[in-house]
Design a binder for these strands. Structure first.
Length: 455
DNA sequence: ATCGGCTCGCGCAA
DNA sequence: TGCGCGAAGCCGAT
């Protein structure tokens, strides 16, 4: 059963011409398991007595993508291809401009099913297809617990304004989409692939992509790896999560953000697993769901309703005003982007965070805040800092280029936050300093851990 | 260790 | 129109 709020027709076209298949363009939801768009497409194919074709389009020039991101994604796609194969669902792997390739394939489709993505380029591809495809286009919103429009129809001001709206309906959307057998055999389809998803290393080597950031050993892409991490997290780190989640020296994170970013695991599946973990206090489970559901919904609300979500202008008026008033403040410590990227500052905690980011494609969440706040302090202007932070975020993090990325960067500049005591450079925007790390955590232990990481 | 103030604006009560 | 209150923090007073 797919909740009706997840089902969104993007045009009102119907097709009577001779067609060959139902087409599912997999883009955001890169998984076979717990994928409502896929199950909707299977049901459509069965209802119409047609075969189903699933297509994925690999784009060498995907915005801000480099080898690190492609390697992780291709590992996940290998598992998608294998899982679809077991269900007898044909999977076509193409290279090119997604909207162009899908438009061409939609020429023989009765209906085009797509999943939902919230970033500008993802929306534009779907708008193009809705306008130009000769068939019905239906979007299925499967990478969020509560569909965005069911929560709110405007940009929310803070967590406290969106929280009651999310919590009021959250549990209505914690359901597993039923897997159905595909009834119509697909032996006749004969649509060629451009690459073999079962050979990710070969594909990666052949791509014409930015190779300046190499793949990492810390994370391996794919649904089964995500599920392994989820099991470990719910068995171990979840107990005590509400109190201790912020300690970088003793991390209690699920580490699922890379997998959620690429749609390799469903947030509904994660939420259900945590909600049903019995041997753990309700407060711990709810603290995790606050991050996974409330904070994530807030991020998606932000990129959905703020058109220029990737610019300094996206932060609220009070924050822009106060930062502007402190534009002329003296900045005694300043670093250029190359100095930052080389982790060559006077601050050992910051350098450790930067090294974790470069070496492993990840950073502890608390350190992400400290890391960003310091770049604001060390940059010539807030606008410059904004570009530096977002650029480094999207370059090195496997979970970069996500709604969470744009929202957490804007948070550093006051978004979804409140004003604090006025001070130099930051004005009334929240400030963080090393004394806080030292007071609260065994931060030297974090530094030693990073130093021990293999590059 | 713990607590209140900081500062602004949303959201609800009136 | 008024006012309570936030909540991924800092800082200084107790």
């Amino acid at each position: 059963m797919i909740e009706p709020e997840r089902i969104q027709p993007l045009n009102d076209r119907t097709r009577t011409a001779r067609v060959r298949y139902v087409l599912y363009w997999m883009q955001q939801s890169q998984r076979e398991a717990h994928n409502p768009a896929l199950e909707f497409a299977v049901a459509e194919a069965n209802r119409r007595g047609q075969p189903l074709l699933v297509v994925f389009v690999l784009m060498d020039r995907y915005p801000e993508a480099n080898e690190r991101h492609f390697a992780f994604m291709l590992q996940g796609l290998e598992e998608v291809a294998a899982s679809l194969g077991k269900r007898g669902i044909p999977f076509v792997a193409r290279r090119g401009e997604p909207a162009e390739v899908v438009l061409e394939l939609s020429g023989s489709a009765s209906v085009l099913v797509c999943d939902r993505g919230y970033l500008r380029h993802q929306r534009e591809w779907r708008e193009t297809l809705a306008r130009e495809a000769p068939c019905a286009v239906v979007q299925i919103e499967g990478d969020v617990v509560v569909p965005v429009a069911a929560v709110s129809t405007r940009a929310e001001f803070a967590a406290r304004t969106i929280r009651p709206k999310v919590l009021a309906i959250r549990d209505d959307f914690l359901r597993v989409p039923r897997r159905q057998r595909l009834e119509c055999p697909a032996t006749e389809l004969d649509v060629a692939s451009d690459f073999d998803p079962l050979e990710p290393a070969t594909t990666l080597a052949a791509l014409d992509i930015d190779r300046s950031v190499r793949q990492v050993s810390r994370f391996r892409g794919g649904t089964s790896e995500a599920r392994k991490l989820l099991r470990q997290f719910s068995n171990r780190e979840l107990v005590g999560y509400s109190e201790d989640r912020n300690d970088p020296a003793d991390p209690r994170c699920s580490s699922l953000s890379p997998y959620l970013h690429f749609g390799q695991i469903s947030p509904v599946e994660v939420a259900l697993k945590v909600a049903r973990t019995e041997n753990c206090a309700l407060a711990d489970r709810e603290a995790f769901l606050e991050q996974l559901v409330v904070r994530r919904e807030l991020s998606i609300n932000f990129v959905t309703h703020v058109p220029r979500y990737d610019r300094f202008s996206a932060v609220p008026d009070w924050a822009r005003r106060t930062l502007r008033e402190h534009r002329g403040d003296e900045r005694p410590v300043q670093y250029t982007r190359p100095k930052l990227e080389a982790a060559e500052t006077h601050d050992p905690y910051w350098n450790a965070a930067m090294k974790e980011m470069v070496k492993t494609g990840y950073m502890h969440n608390y350190m992400r805040m400290y890391w960003g706040k310091k770049i604001i302090e060390w940059s010539a202007s807030p606008e410059r800092a904004y570009r530096t932070i977002l650029g480094l975020n999207n370059k090195y993090f496997i979970d970069g280029r996500d709604p969470n990325s744009y929202t957490s960067v804007a948070w550093l500049f006051g978004l979804h936050d409140r004003p604090w005591t006025e001070r130099a450079i930051f004005g009334k925007v929240r400030y963080m300093n090393a004394a806080g790390l030292e007071r609260k955590f065994d931060i030297d232990r974090y530094v030693r851990w990073v130093e021990g990481l293999e590059s």
